[in-house]
Design a protein around this nucleic acid. Structure first.
Length: 120
DNA sequence: ATTTGCTCAGCTC
DNA sequence: GAGCTGAGCAAAT
């Protein structure tokens, strides 16, 4: 399964390029509300990708203002990584936003399902 | 709690 | 083009 997108210049559909993929990943990430988190897997499942690809996209995130990559966490609430200050900083930011941790994991009640949010 | 296997884009050479 | 590295995950140990 691979993502299909509209090709504006040709007026046809096409298989998503890497760049397209990243744009969609960042778009979905930007939808996560303040004080909530989404798992890498959740985004990956929507797009039919391996969850690792989402991690790669987050690592390369050049626009932390509109792409809140700190709100993307592991499926069990573990933080995994953060290129701008490490997981310690990631945790700090999430706590400022009101996210509660239990045993160094994000409390499950702060997860949202992007697929449900988009009514997919 | 820790290890193992699967997976694939990006990076280096 | 080949080989290595992970911001993942689930299953097995």
């Amino acid at each position: 399964m691979s993502l299909i997108v509209w090709d504006c210049s040709r007026g046809t559909i096409k298989k998503a390029s890497r760049r397209d993929l990243y744009e969609v990943i960042y778009m979905l990430t930007s939808l996560i509300p303040t004080g909530r988190v989404v798992s890498y897997k959740n985004i990956a499942t929507i797009l039919g990708l391996n969850p690792r690809i989402i991690g790669i996209a987050m690592r390369k995130n050049k626009n932390p203002i509109i792409t809140p990559c700190h709100r993307v966490v592991g499926s069990k609430g573990d933080l995994r990584g953060y290129s701008l200050g490490g997981v310690k900083m990631k945790k700090k930011i999430l706590e400022i936003e009101g996210v509660v941790f239990r045993n160094n994991r994000v409390d499950y009640r702060f997860f949202i399902d992007l697929a449900k949010l988009l009514e997919l």
